[in-house]
Design a protein around this nucleic acid. Structure first.
Lengths: 117, 117
DNA sequence: TCATGTACTGAAAAGTTTTTCCATATAGCA
DNA sequence: TGCTATATGGAAAAACTTTTCAGTACATGA
């Protein structure tokens, strides 16, 4: 990894703790894609989030796994296969992800007018 | 400002839009401090969030004002005086801030054990 | 006069995240 | 053989955020 975080998450404030777990650019999107609870392969997630460089999703999935929000299973096959799945802890964040998604939908027009072009 | 953002907020995805408005290190804390709706002076906010450098709070408050989540009133007095107040739009984010605060409180112990020391 | 408080700002350094590029390894297919 | 697909990872560049430092300006009180 290019850079090792000094403090993995923010333990000083409950609000900052939650934020620090999901604030990276693609983490909330990854949790949203994994919301159904289905096992998903990395290549699937890459296709669903084509804007993100594959390397970035790998790195952020790794952190989600370290933090216990997502699980990873590796099958010792060739060609290699692995699957990601949201954990119970990760699922408990989904109401927050949902609320942010709905807020964004409800207020997108304001920010479209304000910032587009 | 040292660096001018290319895109102020993320308009491509509702979830990313909401995240992009609050994901900066101190923005969610500032909204939490302003939650009551009371007018607050910059020096007050600096005292409530002593971990943050005053300059950072100024910059992040400026963005919150630009995005319409917080209002700012400047009194043309000497010594200068100004107050910040959460707007209706900003208040509509408070349920999300609350949910994150509660999630953090409920799960802090897990991450304490995992990451402290 | 000098230190303190108030609000603000430019510039640069430091810190962190995100992206790009290249490389590994193996199987299947044309 | 050469192309594609699978999953992964090192290294470095680029992009962005956060912090520090120094400075403006004015008023008050010791």
């Amino acid at each position: 990894m290019a850079y090792e975080k000094k403090i993995p998450v923010d333990l000083d404030c409950p609000l900052r703790l939650t934020m620090s777990l999901i604030e990276s650019k693609w983490k909330s999107c990854l949790l949203d894609e994994l919301r159904s609870g289905a096992e998903m392969r990395p290549s699937e997630l890459h296709k669903l989030l084509p804007e993100a460089a594959p390397r970035v999703l790998d790195l952020q999935l790794k952190e989600l796994v370290e933090d216990g929000l997502v699980s990873k299973t590796i099958f010792p096959e060739l060609p290699p296969r692995s699957v990601y799945q949201i954990t119970q802890l990760g699922s408990s964040l989904l109401p927050i992800i949902d609320a942010m998604l709905r807020w964004g939908e409800a207020h997108m027009d304001i920010f479209e007018k304000k910032y587009r072009r």
